[in-house]
């Protein structure tokens, strides 16, 4: 396969297809993933090519999806579950947190649970309630899970396959409003490790760390800042559990300032954890406190207000200004 331009949604689809070709134990399961190809068409064509036994239209019950996926994994399968929207994951929360995350530990390492849970997440699509949330911190907080998120088609393609190959359960958060963003994908390229962060744009004045849907926002902010003579270094975290702090710390030691950006509310979010850990490791390098840009401590508001709720280019630049003012 040659390098090409594709979208995140298509890259996930190709990653799933490739994984299913490589390993007959890989299954795709979820609501509407079969005949319809998923509400975002991410699983389009998979049931036609791999059959109903491997691409399973499940009953409309999220706990049931994860619970049966655990059973399939115990029988030797590698299920990839789709939770249709972020806000619908909570009925499955108990199976994910109490069973999926803990069962390998409970068994003293005798059982492995190679289950992938794909979650289209985040706002910005003008949706009704429960379709725009960013619940990643709940899962990053849970030992036993791995949590990753992609921001571009190449990562979407490779991270999907890496997550499926992992013998640990992996939550893959997919930035739904970026599903149709285009980017380069070279299937023959050597991918980064699943849990490595990446410097998405080099800079010298402030490090801005982001993940998933906010990576594009932050890169746009960096472009705007450049016009004002400010050089932002953008770190795409990619993995939320474990965190690749080494890459981030190396960047902060160069720039001496850090702003963390995510859509999720800042209170007890990933940014809080990153601020604490980076401060601990970079205390004598920092010229300013680590600042966070994120959602407010509110339920996700009605969609006509989401542009005010979500971090955008201006909110990122405002935080950059504050970091530089110290």
């Amino acid at each position: 396969m040659s390098p090409r331009t594709t979208t995140i949604a298509k890259a996930v689809n190709e990653g799933l297809r490739r994984a299913m070709e490589d390993d007959p134990k890989v299954l795709v399961m979820g609501e509407d993933v079969g005949r319809l190809g998923g509400v975002f068409r991410v699983t389009d064509g998979l049931q036609k090519d791999f059959g109903e036994d491997r691409v399973i239209d499940t009953p409309l019950a999220e706990s049931g999806i994860i619970g049966t996926a655990i059973g399939l994994a115990l029988r030797g399968y590698r299920p990839v579950c789709e939770i249709q929207f972020d806000g619908f994951i909570y009925p499955a929360y108990d199976q994910i947190v109490s069973q999926l995350a803990k069962m390998g530990y409970r068994s003293g390492g005798k059982l492995s649970l190679p289950v992938v849970v794909r979650v289209p997440y985040g706002g910005g699509i003008g949706a009704v309630e429960h379709h725009s949330e960013s619940p990643e911190a709940y899962f990053a907080h849970t030992a036993g899970l791995r949590v990753v998120t992609c921001s571009n088609p190449a990562d979407a393609y490779f991270m999907t396959q890496q997550a499926i190959r992992s013998d640990d359960p992996v939550m893959v958060f997919e930035p739904k409003r970026r599903y149709w963003d285009k980017g380069e994908l070279d299937p023959a390229a050597e991918p980064l490790p699943l849990h490595a962060a990446r410097v998405a744009r080099a800079g010298t004045d402030v490090t801005v760390a982001a993940y998933g849907p906010m990576v594009r926002t932050v890169i746009e902010a960096a472009t705007a800042a450049e016009a004002e003579g400010r050089s932002l270094e953008v770190v795409d975290l990619r993995s939320l559990s474990p965190l690749d702090l080494d890459t981030l710390v190396a960047s902060v030691e160069r720039t001496r300032r850090l702003v963390v950006v995510h859509e999720a509310p800042t209170f007890l979010g990933l940014g809080a954890e990153i601020a604490a850990r980076v401060t601990e490791r970079c205390f004598y390098h920092l010229e300013a406190p680590v600042l966070r840009v994120g959602g407010f401590h509110l339920p996700y508001p009605a969609s006509r207000l989401e542009d005010e709720y979500l971090p955008d280019l201006d909110r990122v630049l405002d935080a950059v200004d504050r970091a530089l003012a110290f």
């Binding site: 299954l27 036994d53 706990s63 049931g64 994860i66 619970g67 049966t68 996926a69 655990i70 059973g71 399939l72 994994a73 115990l74 029988r75 030797g76 399968y77 108990d94 199976q95 109490s98 069973q99 069962m103 409970r106 068994s107 059982l111």
Partner: peptide, 23 residues
Amino acid sequence: HLYTIVIGSQTLHATGYAMGVQR
């Protein structure tokens, strides 16, 4: 399987395992 303490969770694991048996 290991003892399951959360009430009822294992019925789904059993069902998934049985779906694997079918496959």
